[in-house]
Design a binder for these strands. Structure first.
Length: 656
DNA sequence: AAGGAGGGTTTTTTT
DNA sequence: AACCCTCCTT
């Protein structure tokens, strides 16, 4: 039992309760993840084959770290390994093996956010109700909400509550058909289809129930309905389930996370053992005090008494600035000081913010001072046009049926296949219920498209076929082959045409190199590399944003991230910036009445700090090119224990 | 078919 | 300010 020595008694208790349902309700910084890790170690030591153990984490990064730590604690390499992954990666694993039951090809591609948007656009074509139509973004969030509630496309129109949802329902049906025809699934499908699979094919479910005899879930407070039902069905026979979470850190309500899952755990799993952890080993007393004072303002919560175990050091700093420029200058200057005078590692510092438009100005200031930084949060990278293009090429190579991606690249770089020709082919294909490629000969013969265009199409299809073949026969050379393809189509000229400035051109080519690097990295670490798996990892992992190079230099930098992506992390120095009404709490939360979740989000931010916390706000801020007044966040008042001025609340309410 | 100008719109948060 | 869409010119 020696290895359990550095767990406190409640942690040990939870980690040692191997049978039956266990709920670990714990505050921030109390070692929740550690409980799961030790529990796995105990299971393995007691003779449970490691591959019969499943642990679900919130990010792939967390999964990797947990696996590493488990191996470290066991002090030996593991022959079978425990299955540690996110819900999504778990579902991919199951679906690769089982999805044929649902009529999808095992080589399905996964659509990311951008792909989903194109798919939504396509699905909505000529769906309207009178004058009204839906924006793709709105459609996607409605579809996503339905999927989270396990609403199948056929049922959608019966649950639709207004005109917009009625339109969305028919778009949903079409959207889903399109995806299926393209051999594609979106993020939500990964969960939805797995649940459907388990529901419709009991023998498949039985097989997976037998595969995982012990299940752990981290960050349980952010589990949504469909994830819950997935886990519930997996553990139904044995109920060996240990979940760990903190209702005060529930920040994904907008994605269907329901605090009820954690608060009502004992109802679904009667006799569940409940363990509370309240010894905080992360934060200083000053930081914890601020956090506690803040979160006390939430009504619906388990009242927890978090006990600090660190000596008090510096008080929490609160700073106010005339505008966001000054705010960023201060943070950068302070960080430079910490690094040069106090010998703080850049790695140990983080800037946390609410929205993705905020980091830009901090990046500028950090760059001016030549401080190393890393912006965590993949979005922007995958949004770049050149990345989307290359990924579309890869997807089409991997899954020839993926017409969404095909349409993106069919004329990129331009090969004379214009919009109207594509339109004609598409219309023809829909009419005959065929693939786009299949109608080309007919369309050429009937003169619907010109001979020249038919020729271009033939060349293009030949090109894809050639590279597809090469990739299949020699996947280890994948990066060379893809590089060859990019050279052959002369994508670089496309970039140079697209962007006039040499700097831009260089940067764009550089991001292509990043893809190639990451592909090489993937090939090196994969047992049996395949393009499909590479695509899967890059959509699921966001590994481009943090190149996974084991050598430090890539990782050594100040971290810039949203509060949402900071979840589960900790830093000695935290700068929580932009604490202003309208940002944090975000003005959307005033409309949607989700202030409590904004407060929890702030709580998460505060409790990321181990030793030093700086909270800043600006009094004015540019918005849509115009300067606007900005009031200090109500949360600042709550944290320092002052009453929020009624005038501030009134102003914020009027603002929306 | 392709490129550019002008005008309208936009902003939460992410696996 | 940044992005997307539409329309206009070549």
């Amino acid at each position: 039992m020696d290895r359990l020595d550095h767990l406190n008694p409640p942690q040990r208790d939870a980690a040692l309760t191997l049978k039956g349902p266990v709920l670990v309700l714990a505050g921030a910084g109390t070692g929740k993840t550690r409980v799961i890790t030790h529990r796995m170690v105990e299971l393995i030591r007691s003779g449970v084959p490691a591959d019969r153990i499943l642990s679900v984490t919130f990010t792939n990064k967390a999964a990797g770290e947990m696996l590493e730590r488990t191996i470290h604690l066991l002090g030996k390499q593991l022959k079978p390994r425990p299955f540690i992954s996110t819900f999504h990666a778990l579902c991919v694993r199951i679906l690769r093996q089982e999805i044929h039951h649902l009529g999808y090809p095992p080589a399905f591609v996964i659509y990311d956010r951008g792909d989903q948007e194109s798919a939504a656009r396509k699905a909505m074509r000529d769906i309207r109700l009178g004058e009204k139509s839906i924006r793709p973004g709105d459609l996607l969030s409605i579809i996503s909400r339905w999927k989270m509630q396990a609403v199948q496309p056929e049922e959608a129109s019966s649950v639709a509550e207004d005109d917009q949802e009625l339109m969305a329902a028919s778009a949903y049906r079409r959207y889903q058909q399109n995806l299926k025809a393209s051999g594609a699934v979106d993020f939500d499908d990964l969960l939805l289809l797995t649940v459907k699979l388990f529901h419709d094919f009991p023998d498949v479910l039985t097989r997976w129930q037998q595969r995982f005899l012990y299940v752990q879930i981290d960050e349980y407070q952010d589990t949504n309905g469909i994830q819950f039902s997935l886990i519930e069905s997996l553990v139904r026979p044995h109920k060996n389930l240990c979940v760990v979470g903190d209702d005060d850190q529930s920040i994904y309500g907008w994605r269907g996370a329901e605090v009820e899952h954690i608060l009502g755990f004992h109802k679904v799993f009667p006799g569940a053992k409940v363990v509370r952890l309240q010894d905080n080993y992360r934060c200083t007393e000053a930081i914890l005090k601020v956090a506690n004072r803040l979160v006390k303002h939430n009504k619906n919560r388990h009242d927890k008494q978090l006990i600090a175990h660190k000596e008090t050091s510096d008080p929490v700093r609160m700073r106010s600035f005339p505008d966001e420029q000054k705010e960023a200058e201060f943070v950068a200057a302070d960080m430079a000081y910490q690094i040069s005078e106090l010998n703080v590692q850049p790695n140990d510092m983080a800037i946390l913010f609410r929205t993705n438009e905020q980091p830009r100005i901090f990046e500028q200031e950090l760059r001016k001072r030549r401080l190393p930084y890393i912006v965590v949060g993949a979005q922007s990278f995958f949004d770049r046009r050149e990345i989307r293009d290359v990924m579309a090429y890869l997807k089409v190579l991997s899954q020839p049926d993926d017409e969404m991606s095909l349409l993106r690249i069919i004329n990129t770089p331009s090969r004379g296949i214009g919009e109207s020709s594509v339109e004609k082919l598409l219309a023809q294909a829909v009419r005959q219920r065929k693939k786009l490629w299949e109608v080309v000969p007919d369309a050429a013969a009937s003169g619907e498209i010109s001979a020249g265009i038919a020729n271009s199409l033939k060349d293009f299809s030949g090109l894809l076929g050639r590279y597809r073949e090469r990739l299949q026969s020699d996947p280890r050379k994948m990066s060379d082959i893809v590089q060859g393809l990019l050279t052959e189509i002369d994508y670089e000229s496309e970039i140079n045409k697209q962007y006039k400035e040499p700097n831009q051109q260089l940067a764009r080519v550089e991001s292509l190199n990043q893809i190639m690097d990451s592909m090489k990295l993937y090939i090196d670490q994969a047992d049996k590399p395949s393009l499909a798996e590479f695509l899967e990892q890059s959509t699921l992992n966001d590994q481009f944003s943090q190149p996974d190079k084991k050598d430090e230099k890539a990782q050594k930098g100040i971290k810039l991230m949203t509060l949402h992506s900071a979840k589960g992390l900790e830093f000695p120095h935290v700068y929580l910036v932009g604490l202003e009404e309208g940002i944090l709490p975000h003005h959307r939360s005033l409309i949607e009445n989700t202030i409590d979740e904004e407060r929890r989000l702030t709580y998460v931010g505060v409790t990321r700090a181990r030793d030093y916390l700086t909270i800043t706000h600006a009094k004015t801020r540019m918005k849509w090119g115009r300067k606007k007044d900005s009031l200090p966040s109500r949360f600042i008042y709550e944290m320092i224990g002052k009453e929020v001025p009624p005038a501030l609340l009134a102003a914020a309410a009027g603002e929306r």
